[in-house]
Amino acid sequence: MQLNLLKSKIHRAEVTDLSLHYEGSLAVDRDFMTMVGLREYEKILVGNMANGERFETYAIAAPAGSKTISLNGATAHLGKRGDLLTIMSFAAFEAAEAETWQPKVLLLGEGNTKIIKRPVAA
């Protein structure tokens, strides 16, 4: 049996840009992606803490160190600059592996500058 568990999460990521005419996706600072093991083009679930919107898309890498979180394409209608997002990815695990699995979590502070990397609390 396989279980779908949280693989990685970037919490309180502040939207820095919107690009309605881009083909789609969510651009995320490459450093943030690396910290949580999120791959480019990986499917993500995004929750907007400001308006309750939840949507699926895929991650693309923004320049490392840019602190960029950009809603692209149709997702640009689901938020605005300054909104806080929770960005999640999931993976399938065998039951035995799931017993000890801990997702990688990145908690961001104001302006995506304060970075706290931690495992999810039990």
Rank of each mutant, 00 (worst) to 15 (best):
Y58L: 03
L5A: 08
E56A: 09
E14N: 07
A64K: 09
I10L: 01
T100R: 14
F32I: 00
G47N: 10
I116Y: 09
L107M: 15
A59T: 04
F90M: 11
Y22H: 01
V36A: 05
A122E: 14
L84Q: 15
A59Q: 06
L18M: 08
F93P: 02
M33I: 05
K67G: 03
E94P: 05
N112M: 00
A121Q: 15
M88G: 06
L107W: 09
L78D: 04
D83A: 08
I60C: 04
V28G: 03
H11N: 08
T16H: 11
I115N: 06
P119G: 12
S66H: 11
A121S: 12
K9F: 08
A59C: 10
D17V: 14
R118W: 11
Q2R: 08
V28L: 12
H77D: 09
A62M: 05
A76Q: 04
G47L: 05
A74I: 15
I115E: 11
G47Q: 08
E23P: 01
I69P: 00
K117C: 10
L84F: 13
L84D: 10
G24H: 10
T57C: 14
E42V: 04
F55S: 10
G111A: 10
D83W: 05
L5P: 01
G73P: 09
G109W: 01
V28W: 01
T113V: 02
Y58F: 10
A96K: 14
T86Q: 03
F93I: 05
I116P: 07
K104N: 12
L45T: 09
S66T: 13
Q2L: 06
S70W: 03
T68D: 11
K7S: 10
D29H: 02
L84T: 11
F32G: 00
K9L: 08
F90K: 04
A27V: 06
E53P: 10
Y41C: 12
A64C: 04
L26I: 10
I87D: 01
H21Y: 04
E110L: 14
K117A: 12
L6Q: 05
T75R: 00
H11V: 01
A59Y: 01
I10V: 03
L106E: 09
A76I: 04
K117T: 09
N72F: 06
M33F: 06
I10R: 00
G73W: 02
A61I: 05
A50N: 14
L108N: 00
E23S: 09
